[in-house]
């Protein structure tokens, strides 16, 4: 009952052009049926994400470990709440990150869980930068 060949083939890597996304904006693309948020973070958002005491987080992880070095402004996360799979809303909640409307989990500007029932941070999909303005997800 595992995914069949065509489903796996349809889940091949996709390329996303980042140039049209202005600072402070984000887009949602679908990969393997999952929404992927790509946020162009502002300086303020990056600072917020990095000034946190990592040890105090429910799922400790530095912001550096969640983005690609040299591309700190780009946050790429799977937009599926780690609690029960709803889609969090971007730019909402008290940490200016994501807010899940189903059971009230709040994520920060690095997609890390700060409040609510979700056990872990928003997952970072496998991706790499093909060029400065293009990424390949998958």
């Amino acid at each position: 009952m595992n995914p069949d060949a065509s489903t796996i083939a349809a889940g091949a890597p996709i390329e996303v052009d980042l140039s049209p996304i202005a600072e402070g904006q984000d887009i949602k693309v679908f990969w393997r049926g999952k929404p992927i948020y790509i946020s162009h973070r502002t300086k303020k958002q990056i600072d917020e994400a990095r000034s946190v005491n990592v040890a105090s987080l429910p799922d400790p992880q530095t912001d550096e470990a969640r983005v690609k070095s040299g591309h700190e402004q780009w946050l790429v996360v799977i937009g599926i709440c780690t609690h029960l799979g709803c889609i969090p809303i971007a730019h909402e909640g008290s940490y200016d990150g994501f807010f899940c409307p189903c059971h009230g989990s709040v994520y920060d500007t690095s997609g890390r869980i700060r409040q609510g029932p979700a056990p872990t941070n928003l997952a970072v999909p496998p991706y790499q930068f093909v060029s400065d303005t293009k990424i390949q997800i998958g």
Partner: peptide, 9 residues
């Protein structure tokens, strides 16, 4: 994944 037969519902 086994329940879904894919990467999502």
């Amino acid at each position: 994944t086994l329940l879904w037969g894919g990467y999502a519902v």
